[in-house]
Design a protein around this nucleic acid. Structure first.
Length: 270
DNA sequence: TAATTTGCCTGATAGC
DNA sequence: TGCTATCAGGCAAATT
């Protein structure tokens, strides 16, 4: 499942070959989450000027407009110097004079949409409410604490909502909360400065570490066939019933906001 | 078959 | 009572 580290790893792997590439064609497979929003032929001839990221969105900036990509829950991108014929789940090809960027997405929760500059209505709607980037200096304990006050929802749900801090998905939310010793069900507003500071540090650590090792490989995340290795360092996620690596207590699994959640009842007290 | 996954959307509710 | 922010639940697609 692509979370922020996986998206950033993807961005870094595709940016070099794509910079300056000129679009020669677009191939659309089965419909994704939203329509592209432009006639594919209208993109031919435009050049890639930058490949950026905001939260879990990738932004391919062109000399006019750009493409906003989201990998959903099963999407992955590959860069091919010479692309083979598309497979059943290859739903989008951006063909250029340098090679092809291909989106593989079996469950099609991903999206590719054309945005006409920074003021584009669809882009503003998707990106406008996003929280702070967790690995940037703007993410710091004092404002994080302030943002959590008044949120009565469980802290894990608030992290997943993405309007306070972006990029913390289901896996990393459970992992960060374990490292901070905070139970996922704790109302966000009940966290004091000390625990918020611990959570802040834990989020940065877990995301930075995942980024360093190339992202998680859970389900089918991979970039050009290379796996990430973060799954070897999971402390609670997917470990229901197994002993906590710290205290030996069986890891508990619950549903929180329709999502599976894991925690150690002893290391993460109420 | 039901469960699983993400993030947007809708309708309900809390709080000012 | 009315407004806004927040919250819980639903949905999409494919696989197991």
């Amino acid at each position: 499942m692509p979370e922020l580290p996986e998206v950033e790893v993807t961005r870094r792997r595709i940016v070099a070959p794509m910079l300056g590439a000129r679009i020669t064609g677009v191939r659309l497979g089965a419909p994704l989450r939203w329509p592209l929003g432009i006639e594919p032929t209208a993109l031919v001839g435009r050049r890639v000027q930058q490949v950026g990221r905001r939260g879990k969105y990738l932004l391919i900036e062109l000399d006019h407009g750009g493409l906003l990509l989201h990998l959903g829950m099963s999407g992955s991108l590959a860069w091919w110097d010479d692309a083979p014929p598309p497979g059943r789940h290859d739903h989008f090809d951006l063909c250029t004079d340098r090679g092809t960027l291909r989106l593989h997405d079996p469950r099609r929760f991903g999206a590719v949409l054309y945005v006409d500059g920074a003021e584009d209505a669809r882009a503003r709607k998707l990106l406008g409410a996003l929280g702070v980037e967790p690995l940037e200096p703007a993410f710091e304990p004092v404002s994080f604490h302030a943002a959590l006050r008044g949120r009565r929802a469980p802290i894990k749900s608030v992290l997943l909502a993405g309007d306070v801090v972006v990029g913390v998905g289901n896996i990393y939310a459970s992992e960060a909360l374990f490292r901070a010793g905070i139970r996922p069900t704790t109302p966000a507003s009940r966290l004091g400065r000390t625990r918020v500071a611990r959570l802040h540090a834990a989020i940065r650590e877990v995301l930075q570490r995942a980024l360093d090792v190339g992202g998680s490989t859970l389900r089918d995340f991979r970039v050009n066939g290379q796996d990430g290795h973060f799954q070897l360092e999971l402390w609670v996620y997917g470990r229901a019933g197994e002993p906590c690596r710290v205290c030996g207590t069986p890891i508990r699994a619950i549903r929180l906001g329709q999502r599976s959640t894991f925690y150690c009842p002893r290391c993460q007290p109420r």
